[in-house]
Design a protein around this nucleic acid. Sequence first.
DNA 1: TAATTGGTTGCATTC
DNA 2: CGAATGCAACCAATT
Length: 621
Amino acid sequence: SGTIAASVSSRLALAPLSGLRRVASRVSARVAVRRCPTRSASVPATAALASDPDPTPPMSTRSVLWFRKGLRVHDNPALQRACEGASAVMPVFVLDPWFMSPERVGANRVRFLLESLRDLDETLQSKGSKLVVVHGNPTEVIPAALERWQCTRLCFETDTEPYAKKRDAAVVRAAKEAGVEVHAPSSHTLYDVERLLAKCPKGEPPTAYGTFLKIAASLGDPPKPVPTPDTIPGTIPGDVASLVSQLGSCATGHGIPTLEELGYPALPRGEGFPAAGGETEGLRRLRTTLAAPAYVAEFKKPSTSPTQMWQPADRAFASVKGAGSSGARPANPFEAAKRGGGETKIDAAALFAPSTTALSPYMKFGCVSARTFYHELHAVLRGLNGKHSKPPESLEGQLLWREFYYLAAAGTPNYDKMEGNRICRQIPWSWDSARLAAWEEGRTGFPWIDACMMQLRKEGWMHHLSRHAVACFLTRGDLFVHWEAGAAVFDRDLVDADWALNNGNWMWLSCSCFFYQYFRVYGPVSFGKKYDKNGDFIRHYLPQLKNMPAKYIYEPWLAPLDVQKKAGCVVGEDYPPPMVDHAAASKECIEKLAAAYKAHKEGKGGTIKAEPRVGAKRKAE
DNA sequence: TAATTGGTTGCATTC
DNA sequence: CGAATGCAACCAATT
């Protein structure tokens, strides 16, 4: 089977853990960045490009614009730079078909990417350009493109993930050797991560949000978005096929493939993640959200509901506590979107949303700029006279959490592992593949947990609090399985899987870093029940339980046998019994965490303060 | 150095 | 039904 659990158990026989680690690192490290040394470290926060004048490039300059993340034309400094004085711009996306396979990346994220590429191509075409999608390895394709297309300028958005840093360093090296000028502006995050890092004492990012906020504030407002170009210099003549054919054998194909061509089963619209990928849809959803000021004003992430299913946006906006009753909600939340984009196909029924914005996949791929989000959000906040939620819970707070994790990831070697990770508690997690498989496949016997995991498998998306519930259950709450295994599952299946956020949140939930109150355990029965007494969410994702009385829907094993039979769901036959006794399991986990914390404290005291403390104070055993 | 404060999102029980 | 409390008491940052 193609599960992460199977990968764990098959590799365990020969080389414990290495198989999973390899898969996890490949899957997670699809995109990344290196700051280009040609750009000054002291670029002012505003006007990232205007202040960096180029010595009048010759009109014959041809640029390669390399898209990876940042699949957009708005707030795209690399695009802006590629266009400056250029006679031709070659927008390229390099698709590695080996990487885009079902065991590495789930269908929902691949489909979202393909939709985003199609949208980007359409937008580029409307501006006189087009997207050249090349199949192959980017470290071979980009140097070949520079040479064969005779391009003397390479522009791409900086990516701070380790895999991308390494990849981009190799490409930059080749480009420099060929005499190509390279520009790699920062635009994926609110701030240039390197500038944030420079503000951290000893270059070590804070592990507390409040400390991070001070560092971010010291840089002032994030840079304003750069303008969207009306027109883009055309590519050199030829259709995509003939252009790619010039690249030689490093290109193994061209064009935007279908899911089926990549080896995935069909996933028609209407199944899976409910919204289409791409900049156009991302901006539409952003602006529709921002057109509901009451929703923006009252947004508090912990108050949103993990069991609220996707529904028309006007109802979603009303669901945030207080937003529906305040009277401030506009009669038509779509007006601003219509005004902003000149769109004609906007209608309320087409924009479905859960209780949160569901913009995360657009942020992950850079279909929506964080800086555009930030500044358009602030325009709304300014109209609210301070009467709105604030970080960390607010919408702005969510953008800053993203920034927090990007900084932590960039400043922490081995960030995606426990071993060798400076900030990560060393905890003797298990790699029990049977436990992992039950969790991964949604058959733990706890309907709330299993329904969440089925939502992940089907749609590639879960509410933030659902992610908390299942992550806690897998690690410190019940199963005591390694957080790296859970992170690998999320990294494959989530439509919004983002390396910095995913690993950071798994450390958070497993009490490995950032959060430490290991005795606060999410109940696999009680937590979901708080939001959804009747269990409609469970009934939707676990149809075998749809006729179970509400009294037993979260604990079907407690239902008398005749009730189970009447509901058509006998525990042990139609649905599994609970794989652990939660009370006993969580107690054991808490004890293990307490022991690991104690060992950490003693180890730390011994190594760091051994000398000055000799004879000064008796250590706890 | 020691104490204090605050920390996006627990649960069960009580008022 | 929302707020308050005990639970056994974590850590990072600040003072």
